[in-house]
Design a protein around this nucleic acid. Structure first.
Length: 435
DNA sequence: GTCCAACCATTACAGGTGAG
DNA sequence: CTCACCTGTAATGGTTGGAC
């Protein structure tokens, strides 16, 4: 490759350039380089920028920005070189935190623009980054912007119910998936409010994305919404995208089977269809003890019957007319709030499936699941807190006895959310509650 | 109308990962 | 070490469209 040092006031023809492609000598100069007039090809010969020639008897000064105090040899020859060195060293001293802040800002900008995230979130990311970094002790690996920024961006975005794809994020960052995942457990210490985020809102946003992409309309959305509300307690213990995929797939299989393949929905939500299949098998069929599960698609008719029995498909009767709300009057009303009444709701799964089961949902506020020697395989035990607890440090004990017939299908309790849970019973008699 | 290849959806299963 | 959960992928099945 030939490098040309082209002085001012020269003619391109003086350079005797020849086109690499057609061999023509009609070459013109453009801002991008030399171009053949005949075939329009840009020549491989690079166009070099010309500046004034170097004069070793002059100091090179940059006109703007930081002062450039000559080259090394020039400085050495200068009688004031020691002073220049000192000044140069002083000028280069920078506050480390400022340097890190700049790196962080650049990284946030880069990742946000790659993922098309709203520009308005920039300051939120930066503040959250500083907040978490402050809590991390020096020397910890997550203090570096390369690791902390992706984590902050991911969780801050999800916290605001804006969909974000973790694998896309990981692709353009330096953090390993292993580190990214392991910080999830630590996140609770630095950001306990994250656990309180509105997951349902995020999931419904994902469902809305599916509805818009495949033009399924608002009916699809409202069916999914109702299904989510009815099954929430049983299906919530997994990733948000999986829950969104699960309810979308069930509604698709029941009402839109010929419109969109389930596989497409899963691809849109970045999950595997096999995941949805196992979710349906365990969380719908095994949970409700419905026999006859073959595969996801082949079981669509049974799912349709289930949705009918849950009164989800009947949009006209959308009011909860078959949902019994039972208020338990109690003098343990904490802070005199209406919401603190204990609600017991029953949803009957009708005989279309010939299953005589009832799904009991009990929402309890100010309770704590007791995990100690008091527990055995036959009961759940909860502590009910009230005003008395504050004064006397005493509380009521709520014991829920599990019906022996369905003991095998005892649902797993999530240790983080005690105040609402489901269990199944057969149709004979009410659940036994001892207070 | 039939055949066949290409493509896509679905199913089945092995394997990775992390919690207990 | 076991189990639950999820992912990745090969195998299988079904559909579509072009050639004859």
């Amino acid at each position: 490759m030939t490098y040309l040092n082209t002085p001012k006031n020269y003619d391109v023809s003086d350079l005797h350039l020849i086109c690499d492609d057609c061999g023509g000598d009609q070459i013109i100069e453009t801002p991008q380089g030399y171009v053949c007039k005949m075939c329009g090809i840009e020549l491989e010969v690079p166009k070099m920028e010309y500046h004034r020639p170097y004069g070793d008897n002059k100091l090179q000064h940059a006109p703007l920005g930081r002062t450039q105090i000559g080259y090394h040899f020039e400085r050495m020859r200068n009688p004031l070189s020691k002073r220049l060195n000192t000044l140069s060293r002083l000028q280069n001293i920078k506050d480390n935190e400022k340097v890190m802040a700049n790196i962080t800002k650049n990284l946030i900008s880069k990742l946000s623009s790659h993922l098309d995230l709203p520009r308005s979130l920039f300051q939120i990311y930066f503040k959250k980054y500083l907040e978490i970094r402050k809590k991390l002790s020096k020397g910890t690996k997550y203090r570096s912007p390369e690791k902390l920024v992706p984590i902050v961006i991911y969780y801050s975005t999800k916290f605001r119910n804006i969909p974000i794809n973790a694998s896309d994020l990981l692709e353009i960052t330096d953090i390993e998936k292993k580190d990214f995942d392991s910080f999830r457990l630590q996140l609770i210490h630095f950001w306990p409010e994250y656990l309180e985020r509105n997951r349902k809102k995020y999931i419904l946003k994902r469902v809305m994305e599916v509805a818009e992409k495949y033009k399924l309309g608002m009916k699809f959305y409202s069916l999914s919404h109702r299904l989510l509300e009815k099954l929430w307690e049983g299906i919530k213990c997994t990733k948000d995208d999986v829950v969104a995929g699960l309810i979308s797939s069930i509604v698709i299989l029941c009402n839109y089977k010929d419109t969109v393949p389930v596989n497409q929905i899963c691809t849109t939500l970045n999950i595997r269809m096999s995941t949805i299949q196992s979710q349906v098998r365990r969380k719908i069929f095994e949970r409700f003890q419905i026999p006859g599960f073959q595969t996801l698609v082949k079981s669509s008719e049974i799912l349709h019957k289930l949705l009918e029995s849950l009164d989800i498909l009947n949009m006209e009767n959308s009011s909860s007319n078959n949902k019994k709300q039972i208020q338990i009057s109690s003098n343990t009303n904490y802070n005199n709030k209406k919401e603190d009444n204990r609600n017991i709701s029953k949803i009957k799964i009708r005989d279309k499936l010939k299953i005589s089961l009832e799904l009991i949902e009990i929402n309890l506020s100010n309770v704590k699941y007791i995990q100690n020697a008091l527990n055995n395989n036959d009961t759940y035990k909860f502590a009910l807190f009230n005003k008395k607890y504050r004064k006397n440090k005493t509380c009521h004990l709520l014991i829920l006895r599990i019906n022996q017939k369905i003991k095998k299908s005892r649902p797993k309790l999530e240790h983080q959310r005690y105040n609402s849970f489901f269990f199944l019973k057969d149709s004979k008699g009410p659940p036994q509650i001892t207070i």
